[in-house]
Structures are given as C-alpha cells and as structure tokens.
Design a protein around this nucleic acid. Structure first.
Lengths: 227, 227
DNA sequence: AGGCCGCTGTTACGGGATTCACAACGAATC
DNA sequence: GATTCGTTGTGAATCCCGTAACAGCGGCCT
C-alpha cells in the first residue's frame, strides 16, 4: 500500500485537471446531482472521456465498474488527493495591489485556502485591515507560520525582493510557494514553486490573436475556403 | 513566403516560452549585452539549449549560423512574433479588487499592454480614478474599443456575469480574452480565450506539497538516503 | 593558410501524454 | 432468464514534445 508514493508520479497535465474536475463536481453536488458518467463530466470540460478515466485511473477506483461515478464519493476523494480535506492555511507576502486583491479574493478561502496572514515591509501598509486582518510586520512571520501550521505562501512582492523573502520562507518551514513575482526562485528540492506570470499569459494570448488576425483564423478541421 | 501561416502551428509549449526568452533578452539588453549563445540563454532559464534552438527554429533564422544570437535582433523579432511591436491596447472588464490590481500593475504596460479602459456596472465604482483613468460605464465600451482599436480584453467580473460580458465583447470586435473568472466561456472560433485560474494553480501546488510531506520528498535523481 | 573551436540549424530519436479499443461488469427491459 | 445498453478499467497505439546528435558555417589563433 504505497499509493501516496505512486500518486506523486502522476504527470503534471493530470494534476492540473484535478481542480477542474473538482470544481465541476462541486457544482453538480450543489444542484443535487448524484451520479455522473465520465462522458458527461468530460464533455462539460471539453476533454475526452477516456482522458478523464485515465486521469482517475492513476489514483485507483472511484467507482465500481459498470456504474457511473458518484458525486458524493468523488468530491471528497479528489479533495483528499489534492490535499484540502482540511483547509490549508496560507500567508500572503506583499500587501501591494495584487496582494490585497488576493487577500480579498474570497474564492481562495472557499476552495480551502484561508489566508491567515498578510505581511509587508512598508510601514504605511502595516496595520491596514483587509477583510478583518491587519497587514503584519515581517517580524511576526516565523511565529505565525509555526503557530498556524502554514505550509503554503503566496508571493506578491517586487521581483527584487522575491529571492530574499523566499529564503526566509524556506527557513521558516514553508513547503509550497505560489510566486507572482516575475523572477525565478531558487529553492531546495524539498520546496515546490509554482510561477504564475501574468505577462506570460497575456503574451501567449497576444500571439494567438495575431495569428487569427493575420493568417485568417486557425482551422482545426483542415478546411478553409479559397485555397 | 507563408511564414505567418506556418507560425500558427507552433505548439503551445513553445509559445509559452517565448515571453520568457523575451524577458531575459530585454534584461540582457538593458545591461548592454550584445551577443548571447543558446546555451547561455537557456541555462539562465533552466531549459536545454537544444530546446531553445528548436523553439526558434519554428520561426526561421534569427542569426547566421556559426555566430551567436544578437540581442538587438532577437528582441524585436520576438516582439514581432508575439505581436507587440506596437503596444497592444487592452481593456479591463470588472473594477473589483482584482481588476483594480491589474489596472495598477504597471508591468503590463511595460510589457506592451497599456490599459486604455476600465469598465464596471457598479455605479459606486464608476468615476473612480485608477492610475489616471476613470472607471467607465459599460455604455462606453463599444465606442472605446473601436476608437482605440482594442483587440484584447481582461475579464475580472464575477463568474455569473462572465458569459454575458463575453458575448458583448465578441460583438464589439474583441479577439482575445484573458479570463480570470472561474468559468468556461463560449466564444466563436475567431476568438481566443486564455483562462487564468488562480484556484487551479494553488490546488496543483497543494498536491505537490502533500506529496513532499507525505511521501518523503520526490527525487528526480533516483537517490535518497535511508531506503 | 590551415586547423581548431564554438555556434546555429536541422534531423532523428526517445519518452510521455492523449486517444482509441475492448474487456468486464451492472442494470433495466422484454 | 437472456439480452441489450451503458458504464468503467485498462492496455495498446498514436501523436506530440523534449532531447540528443550531427552537419555546416564563422571566427580565431598559430
């Protein structure tokens, strides 16, 4: 029984789909749907049913064969896989515009990631209340991380400070860093970083836009008039 | 000479790296570096040199063989490929916390995406100044899009309104939508959507964190002590 | 001038992800 | 009860991306 070990070899592509599955399933759960077939679920997400089953297959049986998936089984199973059976407390580093926006983004808490601390170095920001929480001085960082058992940090500091803050987070025991700073972070192997770069996103969008405008729209069906 | 046509068949993975190349190259340019080899550039981005050359190969020669890449040639070439040789004006739909944060995020303008309009339906927000621009009433949407030639929109409205706003954007001639709402958008084939879902990002991070904590840390080198 | 070194462009290969195909199973219907 | 339909689990095949290898070119040093 080393399923946890095995689960870590799951490809990234599959991992990124798990939250989408969970989101849709919660929606179904909310409106009282009990059963859902792989085809139904997959079509609503614009993917192939076989891929969905393949994804689930990494983690073992969520259903007895011959019968559709049961929403009430799938939701907690996925939550357990993702690691949010219990809420995962998080801290935000950097109370600038983006940090404040994220602190206010109630969807995060709703999805199992309550923000338990917001930190900044700017004295003008310290003490400012955001959704009932004060922006804290960095002095309190280590203590709060330890007290609340925080393992995930959201980094919204300027790129110039990102590495220094990261080092401090790592020393404080943070295991996952959600990095919004436009810079690469160096961390030990025991820490995971996920970069979320807005500029990358909008630029790849721009490329596709240019393709559509310049080259006629892209066709996936191989058919186009006049050629 | 159908390079533009061909360029649209470039894999997504390559497209997502182009902004990273451009970013690093601009940094080099800023400090006066003239030449850069594929190895130098690749190493600083933690990828293989062969992959970088492979990526560039989709678009044709940026350099004469035998000599390293010239920063001053590469930067405008990439900008032209991405479609930001001239600034791409954008509009933001939804002036909530996230919309305001993005409007204040000067990096966007720096990277070639100036925000020329911020819109909301909330009368309390309309008129509010953000970085010198008022939040506008939706009435002005179509006119401004046409006047400024806007092709890219950033969507930060609540999920419930996202599709309605999208339909209106499409009718107004928007070609690319950067969607922060946690919902899928239906658009015609001539419009591109890029979903940026924070919840997905933090959940996949959470999964990796769980793996590290539960299963001992993942090893890519096949070596681990005491087993 | 000649040889050596470093660089890019390009092709070939290997591996991973997606898709397909089918076997095994349950339920409902006739 | 048999049969048909719909479902999942799973291994095979296909496709695509990442990597390696090498050919061709330019400059430099001797």
């Amino acid at each position: 029984m080393r399923k946890t070990r095995r689960a870590c070899n799951v490809p990234d592509a599959t991992i990124h789909r798990l939250p989408l599955y969970l989101e849709k399933l919660k929606l179904l759960q909310a409106i009282g749907v009990e059963d859902v077939s792989s085809r139904q679920l997959a079509e609503s997400l614009d993917i192939k049913a076989s891929q969905l089953r393949h994804d689930f297959h990494y983690f073992g049986g969520f259903s007895r064969p011959g019968r559709p998936y049961q929403v009430d089984i799938l939701v907690p199973a996925l939550e357990q896989i993702i690691g949010i059976s219990q809420p995962q407390p998080t801290v935000i580093l950097g109370a600038g515009h983006l940090g404040q926006a994220l602190a206010n983004y109630q969807n995060l808490e709703l999805q199992g990631f309550p923000v338990v601390g917001i930190f900044d170095v700017n004295p003008k920001l310290i003490g400012l209340e955001i959704r009932g929480q004060p922006v804290r001085d960095m002095d309190e960082l280590e203590l709060l991380i330890r007290d609340k058992g925080v393992r995930i940090a959201i980094l919204t500091v300027p790129a110039a400070n990102a590495q220094a803050v990261t080092d401090r987070l790592v020393r404080a025991g943070i295991v996952g860093i959600f990095n919004f700073a436009p810079t690469d972070l160096k961390v030990p192997e025991t820490v995971v970083v996920r970069n979320e770069r807005l500029a990358v996103g909008i630029m790849s969008l721009s490329f596709r836009v240019k393709c559509i405008i310049e080259g006629g729209y892209e066709r996936t069906d191989g058919l186009v008039a006049g050629e």
